[in-house]
Simulated scan of single mutants.
Amino acid sequence: MLKIGEIVQTVKGIIEARIGIVKQEIQDEFVGILSRLILLVVIGSMLMLVFLFLSLSLAFFLSQVTKSPYMGFLIVALLYFLVVLAMIVTRDSLRTQQRVERMLKNFIFKVKLKREQEENEQEIG
């Protein structure tokens, strides 16, 4: 005859094991998301440096072409000003917001999506 105490202990063990598995999955997903965010910051920083040096190079080149020490920098500044104006005009665009959101979700949660696809393929196959 089964004892209720043994059944309760078994159920407790199963629940504790499941809680441990869920905790581990949450930690793995958090670490994955955090590492992708850190990578995104590093990539963004490197791109900023690239744009900085390209902007300076273009400004110096345009200064030589126009034979004016400040005209190249003024032209580059005006180009950036036009870009900022275009961004301000399109900031409320739902389409632009959706594109940015989709891009960030795909970049940050890519690991999770791949894992889900692999699990679905294993279930089907």
Results as ranks from 00 to 15, higher is better:
residue 81 F to R: 03
residue 79 L to C: 14
residue 119 E to V: 13
residue 84 V to Y: 15
residue 59 A to P: 06
residue 65 V to Q: 05
residue 117 Q to I: 12
residue 85 L to M: 13
residue 38 I to L: 13
residue 92 D to W: 00
residue 117 Q to S: 07
residue 89 V to L: 11
residue 58 L to P: 01
residue 42 V to M: 13
residue 24 Q to S: 10
residue 89 V to T: 05
residue 115 R to T: 09
residue 70 Y to S: 15
residue 87 M to P: 01
residue 47 L to K: 09
residue 3 K to E: 09
residue 14 I to K: 07
residue 93 S to P: 02
residue 31 V to F: 06
residue 69 P to Q: 11
residue 50 V to N: 05
residue 84 V to N: 06
residue 31 V to A: 04
residue 120 N to P: 00
residue 31 V to P: 00
residue 34 L to A: 11
residue 105 K to P: 00
residue 117 Q to P: 01
residue 98 Q to M: 12
residue 92 D to Q: 01
residue 79 L to K: 04
residue 19 I to W: 03
residue 31 V to N: 02
residue 30 F to S: 08
residue 5 G to N: 15
residue 35 S to V: 11
residue 107 F to S: 08
residue 58 L to C: 09
residue 4 I to K: 12
residue 73 F to Q: 08
residue 68 S to N: 15
residue 104 L to D: 01
residue 116 E to K: 06
residue 112 K to P: 00
residue 39 L to W: 11
residue 70 Y to W: 14
residue 114 K to R: 11
residue 76 V to G: 04
residue 92 D to E: 08
residue 8 V to T: 13
residue 51 F to T: 07
residue 86 A to M: 12
residue 74 L to N: 07
residue 89 V to I: 15
residue 28 D to N: 10
residue 12 K to N: 12
residue 72 G to E: 03
residue 122 Q to E: 13
residue 18 R to F: 11
residue 11 V to W: 03
residue 101 E to F: 02
residue 114 K to C: 01
residue 17 A to L: 09
residue 7 I to E: 10
residue 120 N to G: 05
residue 37 L to D: 02
residue 5 G to C: 04
residue 47 L to T: 10
residue 121 E to P: 02
residue 34 L to M: 05
residue 90 T to C: 00
residue 61 F to E: 04
residue 102 R to M: 01
residue 30 F to D: 03
residue 24 Q to M: 07
residue 14 I to C: 01
residue 55 S to W: 09
residue 119 E to R: 15
residue 106 N to P: 01
residue 45 S to N: 14
residue 112 K to V: 08
residue 88 I to N: 05
residue 78 L to H: 05
residue 11 V to H: 04
residue 98 Q to Y: 06
residue 22 V to T: 05
residue 3 K to D: 10
residue 85 L to S: 04
residue 72 G to K: 05
residue 84 V to C: 05
residue 61 F to K: 09
residue 68 S to A: 14
residue 40 L to V: 06
residue 13 G to D: 09
residue 103 M to I: 06
residue 80 Y to M: 14
residue 63 S to W: 03
residue 28 D to E: 09
residue 35 S to W: 04
residue 123 E to I: 08
residue 96 T to R: 08
residue 37 L to E: 07
residue 79 L to N: 12
residue 2 L to A: 10
residue 72 G to W: 04
residue 104 L to C: 03
residue 17 A to H: 05
residue 64 Q to F: 13
residue 85 L to V: 14
residue 16 E to Q: 08
residue 18 R to S: 14
residue 12 K to Y: 08
residue 93 S to H: 04
residue 7 I to K: 12
residue 78 L to S: 14
residue 94 L to C: 00
residue 1 M to L: 05
residue 81 F to Y: 14
residue 58 L to D: 02
residue 95 R to H: 02
residue 9 Q to H: 12
residue 31 V to G: 00
residue 116 E to P: 00
residue 57 S to A: 15
residue 64 Q to M: 13
residue 69 P to S: 10
residue 15 I to V: 15
residue 67 K to W: 04
